[in-house]
Amino acid sequence: MAEVKSPIPGTFYRRPSPEEPPFKSEGDSVAVGDVVGLVEVMKSFIEVKSEVAGTIKSFTVENEQPVTAGAVVAELDD
């Protein structure tokens, strides 16, 4: 099973902005390079991209929760 990891510590967001839908939901297919979420670090927003293709099985971090560098934010089915 593949995983999407945060490249940097900070606060994880699943939406581009509070008014918009999530980048990805469970069951959505993901291509290499697709944006899965954002991490806010020191007032900057860094995109969290998938390095593999698959289907999102589950998110392992809730919206607006702190993440560490390398933390798994989503699990993918191949």
Binding site: I8, P9, G10, T11, V41, M42, K43, P66
Partner: peptide, 13 residues
């Protein structure tokens, strides 16, 4: 800053 301090990611840089 001081040696060994982990800079938190939540605030300005």
């Amino acid at each position: 800053i001081y040696e060994g301090y982990q800079i938190p990611p939540f605030y300005d840089s």
